[in-house]
């Protein structure tokens, strides 16, 4: 039984990373109906920027983290302004394909840095000794992941409930025409959604970096794991992204703990999210909290 709780806790830690990454993804989808295939690249770039600023430029850790978040947000903003803004009104295939193309370009750019070919890890700033509670061990990076996600959720909750920008984003997500007619700048909201997505992506990337080190492939893979999380939660639901992300993380850890012995080669945690994705699409395609499209002629 303590095994089970161990898997659960580690799963929640991994899941909160997915939740964090999924938040930004859902935000983009909600405001502009774009499925962003370059999300994993944003995550990786955020994590690498933090490393570069903290280790190579020797900035203080907090300042480096903040600067990396701001720079990644800027990257998201620029991507929206330069590429996606021109494609407004184009068929959705073009828009999705542009994000796939961008993912490839960003991949190439990362190969031009040392991060493309090596593994790095942040200097340890957390205690190495894991915490033990009633037979369950939990490492400090895992705690950090959970804490970071909780913090961001609170921030986002405040942002969407109280700030004018957040409310206008919700308005655009709800009805573009109506919000345009009351003076909300839809263009600005789209750009902002990408910037905020950059913020969450960078923070997710840094948390992954502290938990499991910096490796381009595994950071980009988080971008793919986001898809099952958001589909399970409902593609356009922010609470859904969090619930979906944590569920996927827990399922992965349970699968790794219980199923790997029965599968030659193991690695069930790699495939479980996609099985969930397919099953959800078959039986409940709008996910747990997604709004069902009701169409009238």
């Amino acid at each position: 039984m303590s095994d089970f709780f161990q898997f659960l806790i580690s799963g929640i830690a991994v899941g909160s990373i997915y939740a964090l990454a999924a938040l930004g993804f859902v935000l983009i989808y909600k405001s502009s109906r774009v499925i962003n295939f370059a999300h994993g690249q944003l995550i990786a770039i955020g994590a690498f920027l933090a490393y570069a600023l903290a280790v190579w430029l020797k900035l203080p850790v907090l300042l480096a983290l903040l600067a990396a978040i701001v720079l990644t947000a800027l990257l998201g903003f620029v991507v929206e302004r330069v590429f996606l803004k021109r494609l407004v009104g184009q068929p959705i295939i073009s828009v999705i394909m542009v994000t796939i193309g961008l993912a490839s370009v960003l991949d190439g750019l990362m190969y031009l840095t040392p991060f493309g070919s090596g593994n790095f890890s942040y200097p340890a700033f957390l205690p190495q000794e894991p915490l033990r509670l009633a037979g369950i061990t939990i490492s400090y990076p895992q705690l950090l992941a959970i804490g970071f996600t909780a913090l961001f959720l609170l921030l986002f909750g405040w942002f969407f409930q109280r700030s004018t920008l957040g409310i206008s984003m919700r308005a655009v997500a709800d009805d573009q025409m109506a919000s345009m007619s009351v003076g909300v700048s839809v263009e600005r909201v789209f750009a902002l959604a990408w910037a905020v997505a950059g913020v969450t992506a960078a923070s997710a990337g840094m948390v992954v970096g502290t938990v499991s080190g910096l490796n381009q492939d595994s950071l980009i893979a988080i971008g793919l794991a986001v898809f099952p999380a958001v589909i399970l939660g409902g593609l356009d639901s922010i609470p859904g992204a969090v619930v979906g992300g944590i569920t996927i993380g827990v399922l992965q850890n349970l699968a790794a703990g219980y199923l790997n012995n029965f599968v030659p080669g193991g690695g069930t945690e790699l495939v479980i999210p996609f099985v969930v994705l397919l099953v959800v699409l078959w039986f409940k395609p709008h996910g747990l909290f997604g709004t069902e499209e009701i169409e009238r002629v």
Binding site: L87, G101, V105, D107, G108, L112, T113, G116
Partner: peptide
């Protein structure tokens, strides 16, 4: 400079650029 892998960067870079440029200028 050392640590820069131009050889493996070329393919994804050119590939992505071709997709993006075609979609933007010759959809």
């Amino acid at each position: 400079p050392p640590g820069v892998d131009v050889a493996s960067a070329l393919l994804p870079l050119s590939f992505g650029l071709v997709i993006v440029l075609f979609l933007m200028f010759e959809p």
